[in-house]
Design a protein around this nucleic acid. Structure first.
Lengths: 347, 347
DNA sequence: CTGAGTCGTTGAACCGGTTCGACAGCGGCG
DNA sequence: CGCCGCTGTCGAACCGGTTCAACGACTCAG
């Protein structure tokens, strides 16, 4: 493998000249630049990443710490990851994906050893054990998800509280007065998955203000448990006219449940979900939903991270906590309760 | 950040002694070893990855090249990735995840710059443009998926041909004589997704031998197209008694289709799928299926790769092409055609 | 008592880049 | 004509590890 020394020799110049010709950091005569470029081309020269990292203290690699809990819905994860890797690449960075169970140890390993220029953390818990290490690390970090304490960190998340309010308000405006909210499994809450109760508490609060009865329950993450749960709820609350779903598995399971029970959406039941566009398309979910925009969140986190990595001034800017405001994508799955039946749709 | 020089000074020894004390590559007196270890501990010393890579020509990082095509079913991908990252970590490696569209360029970038010690390639096409570069690279590589030309490469894949035969034989043995096979979308075939026609051709061949009529069609990867397709097929071939599904999206869509048509599985229709355990669990698919074992394949590829990376003798061993033999996991979704109805199951 | 062999330690070189300070050569100006 | 300043190039140092050859001290055999 050719080194910069080989290129320099081939071009008949010194190593430093070759370096400057390639980087353009100092003026180099047109003649010499051509010779160096030609030599580099001829020898298929590629700089050694380790050597460059050693010299510049920059690796051009970002760390991505993601954790996979079996009680979460794995397919939804992929979108976040792609949002990060694609944006990172656009900005000239590769991505080190770390899925180790012991996130704090993994974080220390990749930051202390200087393998990465910055880190994106996903699956943030309310009291996340990785955060003290991230704050202490020499590299900047960005979070996708809101922890209890955001100090010293850039944080990006969907505004789950507003999402909860939007869901309730939308159905209240249509005339609904009794709703069910299905959240993630209780395990997720116990582990500190704050987004669950952020949406839930805000929805309950708004329902109280509006005089809407809201049955808020924790769901399941798997079939067939989640199907049983849905049936059980519809049995238990026959007067409910609307369903709010903050649980991917429940959303995916709902169509067959409503079909089996002979319920029409939205004539007999209005439904609003909270998931990603991509998820909706994959499972063809026919529900209006609040877009959770995982790719956008991942992308925003990376952009901010790279800003801090690359600009000394950006490094000292105040930290940001940025919420994406929930956008309700209408798919026609909501209507006033007990509206007259429309003619059956053409098949 | 502490360097090995700091550790050496703190322990009152030379840099080389500190290095040997930490690595154990030369005998060091108990006394000195203790002092060095204590100093390293006190200074929270972690070796600089770039410097170590430069000195040893080993990065302890593996590359993982995965490509995401919008006409493939994204959720299935996650399992492969986890199989790779988890196994790599067990063996002491981190994973650089590269999802760049231009796979050949990405491969060259990470191998030429010596960012990785080895590479795992996924989404292998029949005539994969990355393979020439992988063969030419200084690092070893492993493939998850079977290309047209395996020379010079370690390859791991499910035995899709045997899978096709097993599916047909199983239903033939039960007495079925007319079946449908739903494969991936034709796009996947055009892009060189050999696993599609490997299963398909083998199934057709075995069906011919056994005198079974097999309607082999290409599917869709998304709802609602895939649902329409399923309905269309069941309309078009009313005498079919069994369904073979080599298409995750179709498998996920089938339950609601059979329900809507009032078909009982297996009484009216026998079904065999081909997907992963995890996938079946997530969607609670009630079908017998051939386990495609993505995590096992990823894990096998990494193990072989690391063997080659770490052992100079392994590097010269002959290359392997290893097929996982298809295992049919029974979920009771197959029965003789037109069998008498069992009593309705308890709800 | 001397020479060989062991053990533990060290200084120096090396991996392959980047970057700083110095300097040669040149044209322009006073 | 001498000096200044600019342009382009170079040598050397540095980043932080690993590893090799050498060497001093000590043991032990002859």
């Amino acid at each position: 493998m050719a080194t910069i020394g080989d290129v320099a020799r081939e071009a008949g110049v010194s190593r430093s000249t070759a370096s400057y010709a390639l980087s353009g950091k100092r003026p180099i005569s047109e003649e010499v630049r051509r010779r160096v470029l030609a030599a580099a081309e001829a020898l298929a020269y590629t700089p050694n990443a380790g050597a460059r990292a050693l010299a510049t203290s920059q690796t051009k690699v970002l760390g991505l710490l993601a954790q996979f809990h079996e009680d979460e819905f794995a397919p939804a994860m992929m979108q976040y990851i792609l949002g990060v890797t694609d944006t990172a690449r656009d900005l000239g960075y590769d991505t080190l994906l770390v899925t180790e169970a012991d996130g704090a140890r993994a974080l220390r390993r990749i930051t202390d050893s200087r393998m990465v220029d910055g880190v994106v953390l996903m699956n943030i818990a309310q009291d996340d054990s990785r955060l003290p290490f991230l704050r202490a690390a020499p590299q900047p970090g960005a979070l996708v998800g809101l922890p209890g304490d955001c100090s010293g960190l850039d944080v990006f998340d969907l505004d789950f509280e507003e999402a909860g309010r939007v869901m309730v308000e939308h159905l209240h405006r249509l005339g609904h007065r009794e709703l069910i909210l299905i959240s993630q499994p209780e395990h997720v809450v116990e582990r500190g998955g704050a987004y669950v109760w952020r949406l839930r508490d805000a929805a309950l609060e708004r329902a109280r203000q509006l005089g809407v009865t809201l049955h808020a329950v924790y769901g399941e993450s798997r079939q067939p448990a989640v199907g049983r749960l849905l049936n059980g709820l519809l049995d238990a609350y026959p007067s409910v006219t609307g369903l709010l779903i903050n649980n991917e598995a429940a959303a995916a399971a709902l169509p067959s449940v409503t079909y089996q029970r002979g319920l029409r959406v939205p004539e007999d039941l209005s439904v609003i979900g909270r998931y990603s566009d991509e998820f909706a398309a994959t499972f063809s979910l026919p529900y209006s939903f609040i877009e959770s925009a995982p790719d956008r969140l991942g992308s925003m986190a990376v952009r901010q991270l790279v800003r801090r990595v690359e600009s000394p001034v950006a490094r000292d800017e105040p930290f940001v906590v940025r919420f994406i405001s929930p956008e309700l994508v209408s798919r026609g799955s909501t209507a006033p309760p007990g509206a007259p039946l429309p003619p059956p749709p053409a098949r």
